[in-house]
């Protein structure tokens, strides 16, 4: 590939950055309009001091904890719901009536039950991740070709083995769709959770990228800091998604 072609994706972002810089230099009160040059400087400081990576890592740990717990639960429940009609019929109304309730609406309960640390944040994340995961698990298990299950039965394979050798791999592509959506909303809701938990604790107690943003807003109105956090969140989200996709590519070789 030649250089011009390689640089093409960066042309538009670079232009927008220049426009932003010019516009910010024209605006009068500097504290209402962040300046790219300042954002860059702040970003460098936050990375060099280790504050930003540490906050992102803290949040990422909470996301993974919440996601892993709730994905495991969604996998078991979703499979049971799809495979056994009575289970599905009884659980579906409950799940569907909880689904529209925003994760952040559970914050008061989360704080009352778990305090303001990691468990509360992970609980919110797990709640958010649960729904895309279970909906896609049910869909994945239901959309398996019944002919494949019949084929396995005629080969004399037992029910539990069929679950492991036919249902699970058959549902895998949909499980990955669920995981990507779930990690997306999990990462979105960790910011909200930490922002709010931070508000209650008054800073310092729980950490994480959400709280870092809250501190910049509440104590110093540091716009550049907030922008740096936003960029950090975006980059990590992108890395998570690419990671899941790479895992998917590796685990589903028959779809390549």
């Amino acid at each position: 590939m030649n250089l011009a072609l390689r640089l093409r994706p960066f042309v538009l972002p670079a232009l927008l950055l220049i426009l932003w810089q010019l516009a910010a230099m024209q605006a009068a009160p500097a504290d209402r309009m962040p300046v790219p040059a300042d954002v860059l400087a702040t970003g460098w400081t936050l990375i060099a001091s280790g504050e930003l990576p540490l906050a992102l890592l803290q949040s990422l740990q909470r996301v993974m904890l919440g996601f892993a717990t709730s994905a495991a639960l969604a996998l078991v429940l979703g499979t049971a719901m799809a495979a056994y009609r009575p289970v599905g019929r009884n659980l579906d109304p409950i799940i569907e009536s909880f689904r529209p309730i925003a994760p952040i609406a559970l914050l008061p309960l989360a704080i009352l039950w778990f305090g303001t640390g990691t468990p509360a944040a992970a609980f919110i994340v797990g709640y958010a991740a649960f729904f895309p995961m279970i909906v896609n698990t049910i869909h994945g298990v239901r959309s398996i070709d019944p002919g494949l299950i019949r084929a396995a039965r005629t080969l004399g394979v037992g029910r539990l083995t069929i679950l492991r050798t036919v249902v699970l791999p058959g549902a895998l592509p949909n499980l990955f769709v669920g995981a990507r959506l779930a990690l997306g909303v999990a990462w979105t809701s960790i910011i909200a959770a930490e922002l709010a938990v931070g508000a209650k604790a008054g800073g310092g107690a729980s950490g994480g990228i959400g709280q870092m943003m809250f501190v910049f807003y509440a104590y110093s109105v540091d716009l550049s800091g907030i922008i740096v956090c936003m960029i950090g969140v975006g980059v990590v989200a992108l890395l998570i998604d690419r990671g899941v996709r790479a895992l998917e590519y590796w685990m589903i070789p028959w779809k390549r």
Binding site: T154, L155, G156
Partner: peptide
């Protein structure tokens, strides 16, 4: 397993190779 079936649409497991499909019965039957 004493009665084997060959289906019209073959019903091969798409995530298994030829070899893995063929060894499915001897490997996983009860």
């Amino acid at each position: 397993s004493e009665r084997g079936v060959v289906f019209q649409d073959y019903a091969l497991f798409p995530w298994k190779t030829v070899r893995e499909n063929i060894e499915f019965g001897p490997r996983f039957r009860s």
